[in-house]
């Protein structure tokens, strides 16, 4: 039996839109990316037994659309022109470390109990997305190009006009903030 592609696509659309919005931080651009993905999916006309496999396929199309949009945005309005959030991010780092560079006692990373099991829980992913959304725009966009879209640092520099060393600083801040957010929003409650 041929499953109803249109209703499948409609059911997955909110997930795709959320995925695109997180990375593009622009509702209109996200809508465009999803629209193009749906058109490509309907034209592609592949059949999948399971919705999860179908979603994986759609996300792979969407990821490429997002990269295309980032490339064209990079030419018009490079990310390097976005304001840095230096003060707020320095304050975040100062809240984690003593002046001598040691972790503050209450901020020392504790072991996370069975983090892999969290990956199977929907609630974990809601927290994960909220933590990504909570990052400052420039930080979030560079981080997601690197970790979600899987671009190399060199390419990110090229697309954004940010220097390599600045890119490392931005990625480091993103990881510190994301780890702290997951600790607070998820793992602190999960510790035995």
């Amino acid at each position: 039996m041929e499953p109803d592609r249109h209703s499948e696509l409609n059911a997955l659309r909110p997930d795709l839109l959320r995925f695109a919005r997180l990375q593009l931080r622009d509702a209109g651009a996200a809508e465009d990316a999803v629209q193009e993905t749906l058109l490509a999916a309907l034209a592609g006309g592949k059949n999948f037994e399971q919705r999860s496999a179908y979603k994986t396929w759609l996300i792979s199309i969407l990821r490429n659309k997002i990269i295309d949009i980032i490339r064209s945005q990079g030419r018009e309005a490079p990310l390097s022109t976005l304001a840095d959030n230096d003060e707020a991010e320095e304050a975040m780092i100062d809240a984690l470390f003593e002046t001598d560079g040691h972790w503050r006692a209450e901020m020392r990373p504790a072991r996370w109990a069975d983090p892999e099991a969290s990956l199977e829980q929907q609630q974990f992913w809601r927290v994960f997305e909220a933590c990504l959304d909570h990052l400052p725009e420039k930080t979030a966009r560079v981080f997601m190009m690197r970790e979600v879209l899987g671009l190399e640092t060199e390419e990110i520099c090229k697309e954004t006009g940010i220097s390599t060393s600045n890119c490392w600083v931005v990625l480091h801040r993103a990881r510190l903030a994301l780890r702290a957010c997951l600790q607070q929003g998820w793992f602190a409650g999960a510790e035995a």
Partner: peptide
């Protein structure tokens, strides 16, 4: 340093989670 040793494992986990998220594997 236990704290940094935990941090390092957590960095590896972050990468794993992001890859999974980026490939549409999040439930």
């Amino acid at each position: 340093c236990d704290a940094c040793s935990n941090y390092r494992r957590q960095m590896a986990f972050l990468r794993q989670a992001c890859r999974r998220f980026g490939s549409g594997g999040a439930p």
